[in-house]
């Protein structure tokens, strides 16, 4: 594979042809925040939190391939504030009561809030009417917390390639649902994978909860991205 040289915030980086900016940045020890992107999953460019500036234009770093000589702006105040605004929008658009949420401490949305020092959103809370569905066998789906990243739709499939999750309805009413039959046959591992791949607490595995004590959870002591940042 041919080698590509490019720049992020003035730092010389190298990448491989066909790599996206997000992937190449990671290889170079640079963190670009992501929510809908998931390692090994085809990128979808939904959440826009990875927005970077290339040649004066805003681009989703998860879908844009690196190119020779590319100059990428990433951790600049303008972009960081836009990203923070996206986090704030996701908070007010749903019903996020972190103190009651099983995902708290392991949640990527919350962790981004911490990373950006978010004290309170600049937008008014919408308190939308959303549903929690616990009628499933292996999991629960709480759409109050769903950020519609579609990681579950894209990444959770049965052994014979059937997608278990899908979106239903349109626009502001669109919600995540699972196929009840496929869902009931999910293995424990797959149910756990669905929970782990959901960035927030919208998919929860039944019969376990609050398993890790406060202080030991993923983002209790180290910020999201610190595992990548060099």
């Amino acid at each position: 594979m041919s080698k590509i040289t490019f720049e992020i915030d003035g730092k010389e980086c190298t990448g491989k042809a066909g790599q996206t900016i997000v992937e190449a940045a990671r290889d170079n020890g640079i963190y670009i925040p992501v929510l809908c992107w998931y390692e090994g999953m085809k990128p979808a460019g939904i959440c826009r939190i990875c927005t970077v500036r290339v040649g004066g234009r805003f681009m989703a770093a998860c879908t844009t391939p690196v190119a020779e000589g590319m100059i990428v702006e990433n951790e600049i105040p303008e972009l960081e504030d836009m990203r923070k605004a996206i986090v704030e929008m996701l908070f007010v658009e749903g019903n996020h009561m972190c103190p009651t949420c099983e995902k708290s401490g392991n949640c990527e949305l919350q962790a981004l809030g911490y990373r950006y020092g978010l004290m309170a959103p600049r937008f008014p809370y919408l308190f939308p009417k959303r549903k929690m569905d616990a009628t499933y066998t292996k999991i629960m789906i709480d759409t109050n917390r769903c950020v519609q990243c579609r990681r579950c739709v894209r990444g959770i499939v049965t052994k014979d390639g059937k997608h278990i999750f899908s979106m239903t309805n349109r626009s502001g009413h669109s919600t995540i649902v699972a196929d009840p039959q496929l869902e009931s046959k999910m293995s424990d591992e797959l149910a756990k994978k669905a929970m782990d791949q959901c960035p927030v607490g919208a998919i929860l595995k039944k019969e376990v909860g609050f398993a890790v004590p406060i202080g030991k959870r993923k983002y209790d002591v180290t910020p999201i991205g610190s595992e990548i940042q060099k």
């Binding site: 019903n95 996020h96 009561m97 972190c98 103190p99 009651t100 004290m119 309170a120 809370y125 308190f127 939308p128 009417k129 959303r130």
Partner: peptide
């Protein structure tokens, strides 16, 4: 504004819907 309830209503706001 101190705490989740002051900032976003918190637990009592679970009745908001």
């Amino acid at each position: 504004s101190l705490g989740e309830c002051a900032i976003m209503g918190g637990l009592p706001a679970m009745r908001n819907g």
